[in-house]
Write a protein that binds this DNA or RNA. Structure first.
Length: 492
RNA sequence: GGCGGCGUGGCCGAGUGGUUUAGGCAGGGGCCUGCAAAGCCCCGUACGGCGGUUCGAUUCCGCCCGCCGCCUCCA
């Protein structure tokens, strides 16, 4: 069973599900007013891996992630660009989904939009006001934080210290500096919705409570996001749910920062901060591997050097896929491999949930062949330990070496089994492998002619000519490899 | 000021009270190869500093130093 760090308790503890066999997961999505940066990429990848791993272990997963399409920054940006907020958000939402696709992140089961939930938010706020938990002022409606039991649970700070740091806003009507806005009364030129308090729009913290509870129900299993959302966003979401008497998330997961030169990433730092930038200059899969190389709660450094290291590791896995002709394990969707306790001590390896009969520790999975059950268990025990992806990768690379070594020693069956296991586990992590089927290397006539000429030269032992032809190919951006079957070229 | 995290071999990055090692990248040596590439084998004896607990600490405790974050919109 998966054990995960819970921000509420600060402990790594077993995931206790509301409904056995099914996981409900809500992850705070983007505010669509600009292109996504590396931090968006990281949290998306972290939760994609979590989701895929839950699926891999045989659980049913409902994944909800919202799109915030009404918010101060959206209004500001739209005004600056002289466009409607809805046009701006439509544009950047598309940019977002394009980026997610490039990263290989599975689309959420539900992606609710804040603007579609305003009436439900108004209902919640009315309920809060009715209970005396919220109050109206000249400019909006606020939640009275001091009346909420356990406020500060996620921040792990006593109310007083939070209060000490709270920004004193111009609004003197707030009963406490920590009270946060649920409804903002309209100011000129802003998009508005009707409410009992007049035209206005919802505050940011309200949408996620309403949407998560609506789509996943009371006491859903996991609520996630990046570490900076802990306070005040998640704290305030929880406060509303508590104040209205509903059971909120059972477990809180937060991922760490992306840093650049050891410091929290910021736009002014320049280099590599935009996700597009990174995806433009390196393989998207390398970023997944880079994210996987660190524990999800640690900060990660994204620099040309760490990216290059991830690319090198990826090349090693791709080379394995090429050597063994491994099919892309994700060609048909998420990989499901095992069912807890299905068969004592056995792991059923199969793609797409086809979990028919287990055999002594290994079984044929469609497209994969026999896999190494013990290795899968090692992988799972690493992952079950608070998603220790670096440890999980270690088993993956161990298997890679084993597969190559076995093949070098002529042990075809052992090699295949290890290689297939690598494919299975890469699938579990959402890492596509680029084997021959997906290499997409179609040689143009000129290149093909050079390769043929080189084969001829080598057959005639004309080494000078062969080397010259290789130089020519390399000059054309090809990586040249001579094997028993002749010269092979590929893109580096 | 309050709260929290981190400091592991050239780089990245897990882990553990002591017996055999994480893993990756880079580097060195070797095998293979016409030469390369890819792959395989071998190699580094690392855990911020000072004390303490212990038969024994990188791993537990204390202090110190350094770095980072949160307490304000933020992925």
């Amino acid at each position: 069973m998966l054990r995960l760090h819970d921000t509420a308790t600060g402990e790594v503890k077993p995931l206790r599900l509301r409904t056995p066999g099914a996981v409900s997961l809500y992850v705070c999505g983007p505010t669509v007013y600009d292109a996504p940066h590396l931090g968006h990429g990281r949290f998306s990848l972290v939760f994609d891996v979590l989701r895929r791993y839950l699926l891999f272990t045989g659980l049913e997963v409902t994944y909800v992630s919202n799109i915030t399409d009404i918010e101060d920054k959206i209004i500001e940006r739209a005004a600056r660009e002289g466009m409607e907020t809805s046009d701006l958000t439509a544009r950047y939402e598309q940019v977002w989904w394009d980026a997610m696709e490039a990263l290989g992140v599975l689309a959420p089961d539900e992606a609710p939009h804040a603007t579609a939930y305003v009436p439900r938010m108004v209902e919640l706020i009315e309920d809060l006001v009715g209970r005396g938990a919220a109050y109206e002022t000249d400019d909006g409606v606020y939640l009275s934080v001091r009346d909420v039991p356990g406020y500060g649970l996620l921040a792990h700070q006593p109310l007083d210290s939070l209060r000490a740091g709270a920004r004193v806003e111009a609004n003197e009507e707030k009963r406490s500096p920590l009270d946060f806005v649920l409804w903002k009364k309209a100011r000129p030129g802003e998009p508005t919705w009707d409410s009992p308090w007049g035209p206005g729009r919802p505050g940011w913290h309200t949408e996620c409570v309403v949407m998560s509870l609506d789509l996943l129900g009371d006491g859903f299993d996991l609520h996630g996001g990046a570490i900076d959302l802990i306070f005040p966003h998640h704290e305030n979401e929880r406060a509303q749910a508590v104040a209205v008497g509903r059971e909120f998330a059972r477990h809180w997961v937060h991922n760490g920062w992306v840093t650049v030169d050891g410091e929290k990433m910021s736009k002014s730092t320049g280099n590599f901060t935009s996700l597009d930038d990174l995806l433009g200059r390196s393989d998207a899969r390398a970023y997944r591997l880079l994210v996987l190389r660190s524990h999800y709660r640690s900060p990660i450094e994204v620099t040309p050097d760490t990216v290059a290291q991830a690319e090198a590791g990826l090349a090693r896995l791709d080379e394995l896929a090429r050597r063994f002709g491994l099919a892309d394990p994700l060609a048909d969707g998420p990989v499901v491999a095992a069912v807890d306790g299905a068969v004592d001590g056995a792991v059923v390896a199969a793609v797409d949930g086809a979990v028919d009969g287990a055999v002594d520790g290994a079984v044929d999975g469609p497209g994969l062949g026999a896999t190494d059950a013990a290795a899968v268990e090692r992988f799972r025990s690493r992952m079950d330990d608070d998603l220790d992806t670096p440890g999980a990768l270690a088993t993956l690379f161990d298997l890679t070496r084993q597969a190559n070594a076995a093949a070098d020693a002529g042990d075809e069956e052992g090699a295949r089994r290890a290689a297939s296991t690598v494919a299975l586990l890469c699938g579990a992590l959402g890492l596509r492998l680029r084997g021959p089927g997906t290499a997409g290397v179609v040689l143009d006539e000129e290149t093909a002619a050079l390769v043929r000429a080189r084969d001829r030269a080598r057959a005639e032992r004309s080494w000078v000519e062969a080397d010259r032809l290789r130089d020519e190919l390399v000059g054309g951006g090809w990586l040249v490899e001579d094997g028993p079957d002749g010269t092979r070229v590929r893109r580096p």
